[in-house]
Design a binder for these strands. Sequence first.
DNA 1: CTAACAATGTTAAATAAATAACAAAAAACT
DNA 2: AGTTTTTTGTTATTTATTTAACATTGTTAG
Lengths: 211, 211
Amino acid sequence: MKHLPHKTIERLSQYRRALLICLDKGQTHIYSHEIARIQHITAVQVRRDLMLIGYTGTLRKGYNVKELIDLIGEIIDSQEGINVAIIGMGNLGRALINYFSGKRSHLKIVASFDINPDKIGNSMSGVPCYSSEEMDKVIKEKDIRIGIMTVPAEFASQTTDALVKAGIKGILNYTPKPVTVPKEVYLEEYDMITSLEKVAFYVKLNEKEEA
Amino acid sequence: MKHLPHKTIERLSQYRRALLICLDKGQTHIYSHEIARIQHITAVQVRRDLMLIGYTGTLRKGYNVKELIDLIGEIIDSQEGINVAIIGMGNLGRALINYFSGKRSHLKIVASFDINPDKIGNSMSGVPCYSSEEMDKVIKEKDIRIGIMTVPAEFASQTTDALVKAGIKGILNYTPKPVTVPKEVYLEEYDMITSLEKVAFYVKLNEKEEA
DNA sequence: CTAACAATGTTAAATAAATAACAAAAAACT
DNA sequence: AGTTTTTTGTTATTTATTTAACATTGTTAG
Ligand SMILES: NC(=O)c1ccc[n+]([C@@H]2O[C@H](COP(=O)([O-])OP(=O)(O)OC[C@H]3O[C@@H](n4cnc5c(N)ncnc54)[C@H](O)[C@@H]3O)[C@@H](O)[C@H]2O)c1
Ligand SMILES: NC(=O)c1ccc[n+]([C@@H]2O[C@H](COP(=O)([O-])OP(=O)(O)OC[C@H]3O[C@@H](n4cnc5c(N)ncnc54)[C@H](O)[C@@H]3O)[C@@H](O)[C@H]2O)c1
């Protein structure tokens, strides 16, 4: 398989999420236009994405839900699963752990880290909280390859450095402070304010156009 | 000014965030390559974005931080400011309110909604929590134009419908359930699992390439 | 004073992504 | 049996976005 577009990767993850719901409902097959409607995109886009990953459906029956879920899994997940840690057990860290805990996934949150003694030693949704000082050791011992950063912004850089030093392979940065990583580490950053301001811009634009 | 690309809007928001930090540090001017380094992009991209919004810097001195912040504000914000509400005061809703409260912004979170009687009537970071039943009334009274949805996924659709009915103009959906809105309402959806699975995919890809 | 430099601003080219167009084939209808 | 319909799969086209090329112009150094 050749290079998959970034956008296709994101959509595959979303398709799978929708497909899992269909599977739960007992649906065995699904048409491209049904997937498309759920995701607010076109059926052509769905078929093109599936073509790119080499999955072929049945004419007039659509795609086999179970098979497609498994294939997306083969592409996105690694067989053995990937271990994940959350750094910073504040409001956001707790929200994420809580959200993730219900999900069946090859990605497992296996540890969290904090500097607050009140949090260290406790567990939340089965995820133990360690002291940040143990980060290097725990990351190596538990073979943690992805870190989700939810520390205060002023600690973002030093936490990043510590994660990189411990051998982490990917970082998902939720602090509003952009950080820098060596090129062998994959970095994804997200900030709510960007999303919210984008919504505000288009709301304003819509209002103008109506006027 | 003609149509700004979606990606440019996102970057403008990010530039401003970085510029506000520079302003606090007392920095009066900044070069395109400095902005670029902070955001992990190229200086050309920065200059191109600024060209699109018609801002012109000073040769060899760079861009005036204050002026640029103000100009981005004129483009992204509306003069009067836009009122925002959060629906669902759980872990995530609290994290977002808390995060947002410190920020100076033309976007103001002025209300939150919940169905849990324990939460209704309380305030958090100065944001009062109302009963969901009052949503229609409060949204109209307070001229709330954007809603951030952090309710459990199973309530996503009905909450969306209620927001639309109340006349909301934009929705930021943090539930993992994709929702549908009429075309005059701007919708942005975000799910952490998509980001995390994307990170996982590229981590796996990097590992393969190294091997 | 002039040449080299370091920055911006703009146009052009390349790349990435989405959309459209259409071919193929199984199923359903007549 | 043949025709229409419906849905997939693929190639071609268009649109969006990024990157590159280069022209411009104050500033500094010789
Ligand atoms: N991306 C978004 O949409 C978004 C939304 C909300 C908050 N945030 C950001 O996420 C971060 C966390 O937000 P929050 O509301 O959870 O804050 P919080 O203050 O509730 O939590 C921060 C936690 O990090 C811990 N901590 C501090 N320094 C640490 C260190 N060096 N190592 C490990 N842990 C450390 C603290 O003890 C605390 O438990 C902030 O940077 C905030 O700006 C981002
Ligand atoms: N996008 C992401 O990255 C992300 C991360 C974490 C959680 N989530 C999602 O965000 C949502 C909230 O997560 P959480 O951890 O805060 O959950 P939570 O259970 O802590 O909070 C949900 C809140 O919504 C309230 N609520 C329930 N029904 C309501 C209704 N009809 N109207 C108004 N309020 C209502 C509940 O009383 C509760 O306070 C969930 O859908 C979760 O899956 C998304």
